[in-house]
């Protein structure tokens, strides 16, 4: 029951108004903990010390920042593609096999969810290290001396894909498990090969899951910086790490805020372009 607070909207009995009332706590939370800080960041970016656009002009006119920004998006893109390629078959198997297999696989995925990113990053340091098992295996197969794996782009990409796979699998799984398999059977009975049935029926139906998963993984990856610093090549720099340095080391709040706003705008722009040409809303159905 809604307490009789005497709002006109409630008296009108509009179910829309009641729905909004239910949303109120969430909206209030978002306003206080998301919109206000975000507004502050925008404020700092043009008000440090007085009103100025110099933090933006110095960013935009400096190729160093562009290179870091481009590198970050490149890394996020590559990681997203590999995470999708590895997660799709896994999610598909979980949905198709069901039963114990699904339970065990989902449990394994949930377990890696609960293990901290840092712990998993350090585990990769051991696996990929000079005295680690992976190089030992390569050398046992005659590749001697095996190349050094740690502190390369390969290592950081591999680890980030591994860290983000659970998010991708769960995003795909939640959509795939709702797909009515009768559609696929109908396609088969109408003469489609197994590949055609998958390609023309199942894959398009699972597209919202792909978009969800890729969006989630891409955006999470943009914010990564500990993993590339610990595993990647020294030259690899992520924009989130740069923002951290601007605040912690340089005490440049304005510069850091401007960098954050630019990162946000570029991310939104990419999704706007994607929406324009691919059409997010069509996929959402």
């Amino acid at each position: 029951m809604v307490p009789p607070v005497g709002s006109a909207a409630i008296k009108s009995g509009s179910s829309d108004a009641k729905a909004w009332l239910l949303l109120l706590p969430a909206l209030a939370f978002l306003a206080v903990f998301f919109l206000v800080p975000l507004g502050q960041v925008v404020f700092f970016s043009v008000m440090d010390p007085g009103f100025t656009l110099k933090h933006y002009t110095s960013f935009l006119s400096d190729s160093f920042y562009w290179r870091v920004l481009w590198g970050t998006f490149q890394t996020a893109g590559i990681v997203t593609i590999f995470a999708l390629l590895m997660s799709y078959p896994l999610a598909y198997m979980i949905v198709r096999m069901g039963g114990h297999f699904a339970t065990v696989m989902l449990l394994i995925i949930a377990m890696s969810f609960w293990t901290s990113f840092l712990v998993r990053t350090f585990a990769w340091m051991v696996i990929l290290g000079n005295n680690g098992p992976l190089r030992a295996i390569l050398e046992a197969f005659g590749w001697s001396p095996a190349p050094q794996l740690l502190f390369t782009r390969f290592s950081s990409t591999l680890a980030m894909v591994h860290l983000l796979i659970p998010f991708m699998v769960l995003a795909l799984y939640s959509v795939m498990k709702k797909i009515d398999m009768n559609f696929v059977r109908a396609a088969r009975s109408l003469g489609a090969t197994p590949f055609q049935a998958f390609h023309r029926v199942f894959l398009p139906l699972s597209a919202p899951g792909i978009v969800n998963g890729c969006t989630l993984v891409f955006i999470m990856c943009l914010g990564f910086y500990v993993t590339p610093v610990l595993l990647g090549s020294p030259r690899e720099q992520m924009i989130a790490g740069l923002i951290g340095t601007q605040i912690e080391e340089f005490l440049e709040f304005g510069e850091a805020s401007a960098t954050s706003v630019i990162l946000l705008l570029v991310t939104l722009a990419i999704f706007a372009i994607y929406n324009r040409f691919v059409g997010l809303d069509k996929l959402w159905g």
Binding site: V32, Q40, P49, S58, E252, G254, E255
Partner: peptide, 26 residues
């Protein structure tokens, strides 16, 4: 390059806002 040295002193007004918010939340 920016004049980073004196900036810390002139950030007062902006930081006061941050302080007020921080005081409310923590």
């Amino acid at each position: 390059m920016t004049d980073s040295t004196k900036k810390g002193m002139n950030r007062r007004s902006a930081l006061k806002l941050a302080g007020a918010t921080a005081a409310l939340t923590f």
